[in-house]
Amino acid sequence: MTFTAYADWWWPYLFILLGGWVATDFWRFLGVYLGERLSEQSQLLVLVRCIATGLVAAVIANLIVFPSGELASTPMALRIGAAGLGFLAYLVSGKKVVVGTAIGELVLCLVLLWRGAL
């Protein structure tokens, strides 16, 4: 039952529908249904948010540590360093996502340029 399990043209779309659309819109529809009934302060929601955040963080870390494609040919220390500096710039600039993203990209590109890869 993996993404590439069946050769039929519709299987990847069914996979995306069930694994992606149902899995996300379920929460959106539930949100509409619950309306104001659910307190955002409830401890259960705090736990659920923590697990969700940890999960997304794992995805990010794996994209940085074990990337695919062209990013894989860059040194791991550079990727971690650039992401770290970008995050630092984000914090220093008063949580501006633009600044953090731009600094991280700048560090990556400058080092690649310096190494003669650009």
Binding site: L71, G86, Y90, V97
Partner: peptide, 20 residues
């Protein structure tokens, strides 16, 4: 190649900041 590496780097950078 270097440009596409920079492109792929956008997703983790965007999330590492916006998730926080």
């Amino acid at each position: 190649p270097a440009l596409s590496a920079a492109l792929f780097f956008l997703t983790p950078l965007y999330f590492v900041t916006s998730l926080w």
